[in-house]
Amino acid sequence: MAHEMRLLETGVHDAYFNMGLDEAILESVSRGRELPTLRLYGWNPKAISLGYFQGARQELDLDACARLGVNVVRRITGGGAVLHDKEVTYSLSLPETHPLARSSIIESYEIICSALVRGMGFLGIDTEFTPINDILWRGKKVSGNAQTRKHGCILQHGTILLHVDVEEMFCLLLVPKEKATGKLIADVKQRVGSLSEALDREVGFEETVKALIRGFTEALNLKLIPGKPSEEELARARSLAKEKFSTEAWIFKR
């Protein structure tokens, strides 16, 4: 029997609200107030999210971020810094007791990422999951994923790159400028890809969302029920955005 899961397509929001809503959904799912939830969303303005254990000052050129209007936010999940611009982001919240949940982090990544691999397959892109948390197309990373567990729930969120601008990444990440040219940029271009590069055409947000929904439905045997965040979740997300995710105390926690 298919697993019932709420589907939220929440559109494009700023970094602080986006991270607040992921946490608010995790909380409401953990309390049993909402079904396990798949959320698909985007970012505006563009932003860099840091992994929980990263240092903002060690990873980012904060002056460049401010100058270019790039928000900086710390995630509640580990992993590396991600530039969120032309991409589709997903989050999946489900109880640790759910049949799709696994106690092992790596196994959980593998299961959830299988849905992304299936979804990208529907676009005609042959990708593979590579532990710990990446999905590769011809050896290039096209999706990074991060996971945490709180209140008896798993939250995994991740990004599927529609287009990547390596030069911009190097403007924003704290790489010595003399190194951020030539060979290093060429090397990163060999290791980071996008759906647009894979298909040699611009791949849009909506078509990717559709493919991912199909991928999740089939790979995880889901019955997705379209819905909206509850008023309580939205209020909690706004509160978390204001009181946590946008604060210096949180952003510079490490």
Binding site: G51, F53, Q54, T77, G78, A81, T148
Partner: peptide
Amino acid sequence: INIKGDFFAIPEERF
């Protein structure tokens, strides 16, 4: 010691 990086440790607060 202070350890930063792109690793995973769950639950994060216990780390």
